[in-house]
Write a protein that binds this DNA or RNA. Sequence first.
DNA 1: AATTTTTCTGAGAGCGCTCTCACGCTTTTT
DNA 2: AAAAAGCGTGAGAGCGCTCTCAGAAAAATT
Lengths: 346, 346
Amino acid sequence: MTADAPLKQPGRPSLIQVAALSGVSAKTASRALSGEGYVAAKTRQRVHEAADQLGYRPNGVARDLRRGAKASTLVGLISGDLANPFYSRLASGLERKLRVNGLQLITASTEENPEWERQLTDTLLERRVRGLVIASTMAGHDHLAGERIHGIPFVFVDRPPVGLSADAVLLDNRGGARQAARHLVEAGHRRIGVIGDLSRLFTHRDRIGGFAEVVETAGITGWADYLLEDAHDVATAERAVRELLGRTPAPTALFTLNNRITTGAVRALRGHPSPPALIGFDELDLGDFLGVSVITHDPEEMGRWAAQLLLDQLFGDADEPARHVVLPTRLLVRDSSERPPRDLGG
Amino acid sequence: MTADAPLKQPGRPSLIQVAALSGVSAKTASRALSGEGYVAAKTRQRVHEAADQLGYRPNGVARDLRRGAKASTLVGLISGDLANPFYSRLASGLERKLRVNGLQLITASTEENPEWERQLTDTLLERRVRGLVIASTMAGHDHLAGERIHGIPFVFVDRPPVGLSADAVLLDNRGGARQAARHLVEAGHRRIGVIGDLSRLFTHRDRIGGFAEVVETAGITGWADYLLEDAHDVATAERAVRELLGRTPAPTALFTLNNRITTGAVRALRGHPSPPALIGFDELDLGDFLGVSVITHDPEEMGRWAAQLLLDQLFGDADEPARHVVLPTRLLVRDSSERPPRDLGG
DNA sequence: AATTTTTCTGAGAGCGCTCTCACGCTTTTT
DNA sequence: AAAAAGCGTGAGAGCGCTCTCAGAAAAATT
């Protein structure tokens, strides 16, 4: 079952056929259907009837080709994982702001696979979407270098462009991690387990960097022994946390570097007699309910900003230099981080 | 800031220019870049170098126009709310199955707004995607009547087509609701609060229907007094549950008709001295953790089936009649539904 | 009555690509 | 030696639409 099977295509009616049936020229039919220019009322009606009768649907591909990319109303969002509430909220903010400006959002998921990301960006760029918003999982973006000049604007979100100057909306990952670390250190924790996502991701490295700053300033050495990386899904994170808690001495606190990992940690800590303190990056769906302290931020706002930058590129001065927007994070203290450090081991 | 601002388009290089730069005809350049047909090795290289130098990117719109819709690799998914884990899991199953068949998935969200759904389907159909998967929020689908014959295949998911014969993948909503109702009734509950989504949604009506069957057979009258509808988001659901619990007599059990509503109920029940039994439709993110009984099913499987039906339409016999696939549900009993009915009132 | 202006329509070109058809060159087969 | 087959390339058409340009008919102005 491959792409060459015999598929029959009865052929859709074209504008020409609608025009023929209603006894006018193609251009007049076009005018009647698009509502542009002068068309006599009864001509318009005749054309519409013919179109309905034939089941005509305009060919947007041909229209786009003729009009050029600037006519398209589609904006693409490429993200790693749509199931992640962070991205779906970002998409939601983005979509709303685009919609009020007459643009439609379509999204595609790469599942953090650079090869698929490349294929998807290529497909969308070749299809001449109006603009592209990318949460990239790739190490470099040289292949996009020509795009900005050549017309299709794009904006990076969550993760910055590498080897390329382009608009971006980022989070203050470093600052957020510092807030979390400071909170734990000030509560007296010295052994803090850190569970991170894919180590190649920029956000991840920045968060570890912020954490490291604070703990090293506090004179804590050997913190890296309690660092586990590449826990990309909930199950892996859960296992990583169990592993950390089984050590001697065990960490008295945990810092989980994104929402999925936090979820895994919550699972691992369930029913634990003396759970370590816990603080996670990203808000959690039932975070308040579960009493989990988090470094929170506003994904919708990130989406809105991405839309704004895109709109500026579309309708503003094309010669503007690339802009970076950095959004703040906020420490939200709930129960989970208030557990004092109890020294169990050595 | 509208769509007519002065936007400068330096113009992207076309195949013609690549051909000119490398001293060959357009057709040869096309062959060299697409890797099809015979091209001398050094000609191919020359063309590729010229393309790189100019920053050439093929115009997929023109290619699609020339080749016809059958060349496209894009399949669209239109759903009500991508942030809902049900849809994102569905999208995930769909995407994977499409990908191994060389197709790419793009998704668009309607936020349950029929007008936007219409716009998005139109846009995607006009852009000649290869196929369309729709979780429709519309009351009728006459406007799609011509599509199946005219070429672009589509599959309905979660919600059936109305006024139209088309492939669909549905859930056994009625059966699932019966399971839930039976479970509660057999535990002795007589006053069961039911909180539902938008009453116009097919899934919703079917679930209420299944519930009604069971309770009426059990001789329970007046159940509709405890039915609250149109709780489309978590907050509304939470309020609805509080309202129900404040009544005299209060319901001894709750049946929440989808995951968002269940989440709202969990919130409302937090810290309640004697919470009613609870069972929800759809699995919950931390359902096992929270101990919430649910009617569960497999959204990924639904996505895979949708892909299968689409592929069959694309590569199989075009004259096949429309098919409907109904997927089973399963009762998953956890703590929340084991609370016995205690009579508080009347 | 002659003019300008407004309303309505159509012929023809062309967006950028790939397809059909054709021609020449080289290598292999009869 | 000729014919047949395999390679490598290009001219020209056309996918379905909208644009430019232009012309005719109707309405409004002098």
